[in-house]
Amino acid sequence: MLGKLLKLHILLFLVLVSSTGYTADTDPSHTREYQVKAAFIYNFAKFIEWPRDAFPHDSSSISLCILGGNPFGTAIYSIDGKIVEGKTINVNLYDSLEEIGTCHILFISNSMAEEIPAILERLGNRCILTVGDTDHFAESGGIINFIEQDNKIRFEINVNAAQRARLKISSKLANLAKIVRETPKESN
């Protein structure tokens, strides 16, 4: 009961934050930005369908992996334990790709911008929703990338990448996103 109330409050907060549309220039705004992004990540889970084999038979959790430092701060924990389609979100922080076990959503922090193409390549066609907030992330083979547009946080989606990862992205989500194509050199 207590947890539920807490959850509601967080949600309300998130919605408020997301609707006000703060910029990420300043420190507090940076925090708010990542708060919104954390909420977005949580919400992406609602509009994306993983193939069945992505979850072990008894698995009832969605694993959210943060790679290369935590830009969200404590905000990321606000979505830890939240339930999407009957599955609990588990947040795990990793420093290197090798540490990562089962993972459904992989946020690649922009601190690892140099390694992103390699990482994506390494991941190959695994059923992982890759999320980043680095420029050209999507063009590089990432599935969803946060971008800033008119002082608002928006996102772009690489549909090909999603298809390769056998993820079904809801058209509703797609309608909100900027659809990007992979660059030819990048797609190699």
């Binding site: 608002k152 989500l173 309608n175 909100l176």
Partner: peptide
């Protein structure tokens, strides 16, 4: 409009 609402669009 769920997505639009959630994603504040």
């Amino acid at each position: 409009s769920t997505a639009a609402l959630i994603f504040n669009d």
